[in-house]
């Protein structure tokens, strides 16, 4: 009977091959070729130049991974406590809080990011607020400078803020899910065995929520490292990220899908390696504790 049902998987396996595996293979082919002009038009020619020439973009790689890392760490620092506190609330509160976290996803993320532009502009709401509160004149008096606004938009800080803002729910949700599933008796058992609140957290709650942290980190880091809309809107073109670079090769000014494919491949490989290392690190952690 089981075998009969196994056939249900067959169409999907084909679908996956067509729309998941083959596209990546095509991308691989693109990344290893270049377009050359021939008598009858253009043709592909094997080339590793896409990769060797990529050294030019090392800065962009560095910046993307750095900003994404910072955003991920901030998300974790905010998201974990919030998820933890939420998981300890009553069921009614939890339900409302969950709904409130899901809700913003229904507001288009570009619009939400755009809204930050209005807040962060030199003349924006935040600077106006600072002006009214006298923060800016205080700053001028303290440092002896003469500014009439803080430069917030079009900085790397704004890009990180945009990432944190957009992806924070993706950090909170998996951690929260793991924490609510955590057997309450385990923490009681730890208390019983002499662990105070801090020790319970460090020795039981935290290690048991590692899986939530890992999926949260993945869900924040991957879109952060590859974003192009956020860096475009809040970074004002000064914070070029991998996503901008790739988009630029396919739909932007610097049309070169071969290079774009190569950058995508490299990014994909680095991300996968990061994730593998992190997963391994997670497991390794567990083993270390077990010894």
């Amino acid at each position: 009977m089981r075998n009969k049902r196994a056939w249900f998987a067959f169409p999907y396996v084909i679908w996956m091959a067509l729309f998941v595996v083959i596209p990546i293979l095509i991308m691989l082919v693109y990344s290893l070729t270049a377009e050359v002009e021939t008598a009858s038009g253009t043709a592909f020619e094997g080339s590793v130049e896409n990769f060797t020439g990529m050294t030019l973009y090392m800065n962009v790689f560095g910046r993307s991974f750095w900003l994404a890392l910072v955003a991920t760490v901030i998300c974790l620092l905010i998201g974990y406590p919030v998820a933890y506190l939420m998981s300890r609330e009553g069921p009614g509160f939890q339900r409302v809080a969950m709904a409130l976290i899901m809700l913003p996803m229904w507001m288009n993320f570009l619009l939400r990011t755009y809204s930050w532009m209005a807040i962060l502009e030199n003349n924006g709401l935040l600077n106006q607020l600072f002006q009214k509160l006298g923060v800016i004149s205080l700053y001028n008096r303290l440092t002896g400078s003469d500014i009439d606004h803080f430069q917030m938009i079009r900085t790397s800080g704004a890009v990180v803020l945009g990432m944190v803002y957009n992806y924070l729910p993706f950090m909170i949700l998996p951690i929260y899910t793991v924490l609510t599933k955590l057997d309450h008796r385990l923490t009681e058992a730890a208390e019983d065995l002499g662990a105070n609140a801090a020790a319970v957290f460090r020795r039981v709650t935290l290690p048991l929520s590692v899986s939530g942290i890992i999926s949260g980190v993945t869900m924040v880091f991957v879109p952060s490292v590859s974003t192009f809309a956020i860096s475009r809107l809040l970074g004002g073109g000064t914070q070029m990220m991998l996503g901008d670079l790739i988009e630029n090769q396919f739909l932007g000014g610097a049309y070169n899908p071969h290079l774009g494919a190569a950058i995508s491949m490299v990014m994909m490989v680095i991300v996968v390696i990061c994730m593998l290392v992190m997963n391994h690190f997670g497991d390794g952690e567990e083993e270390a504790v077990m010894l």
């Binding site: 095509i26 991308m27 590859s226 996503g243 990014m267 994909m268």
Partner: peptide, 8 residues
């Protein structure tokens, strides 16, 4: 990353 899926 979404962008890799989209591009591929």
């Amino acid at each position: 990353a979404d962008i890799v899926t989209g591009v591929s």
